[in-house]
Amino acid sequence: MNWQALANPARFKRLSDRLLPWFAGGAALCLAVGLYLGLVASPPDYQQGDSVRIMYVHVPAAWMAMFVYANLAVAAAASLVWRHPLADVAGRAMAPIGAAFTFLCLATGSLWGKPMWGTWWVWDARLTSVLILFFVYIAYMALNSAFDDDTRGARSSAILALVGAINLPIIKFSVDWWNTLHQPASVSRLDGPSIHASMLTPLLLMAVGFTLLFFALALVRMRAGLIERRLAALSYTRSADAGVASFR
């Protein structure tokens, strides 16, 4: 499929009409099963007890915080290279979702830190770099909406998104580079996950569910964004027509 054909809003709407129910339904199913397995059926941790269940929300949220940013950076590159209007709409649609996942990650991490580390917050490398990621999302959204001309906002914030992308590897490797309180990766390791299947299954289900949820929300927000653009264009031509009419 020639993906540039998607620039046509009508074609994008038809494709998203077909995809949206699958994304939304898949997200609901994965999240329901994942939450049941995670919160009810999986065993408590031998050290952490039941509070380990925060992991099933915290870890996928953290993955999503970075995954959404990676998508944002790709959309930003597409917006700058191909001047693709759909990429502008996509960036604007995805940023608040990514910020929400990042906030969810920070909030659940804080709730988990209190019983485990005895504190709501520590200035450890990974926490700090995720917090910076959250700030970059905020800056992106502020810059995106700071211009009267939407395209200017989209292009400016796209450059910021690409500059801010250097934060992603820093987050990923922060726990390896700096020896800190936050534990290192235990799922994506070269020697296989160091986590038992009864916990890994709900974790991965939640991750898939969050990913599908992100796609569903992004599609809905992109469609709303396209409608907004259309509305703005319509009201612009209408007021222009009205201006011409009154002139006559």
Partner: peptide
């Protein structure tokens, strides 16, 4: 907002 996070 733009500069401070990147300056950390």
């Amino acid at each position: 907002l733009i500069v401070l996070p990147l300056a950390i």
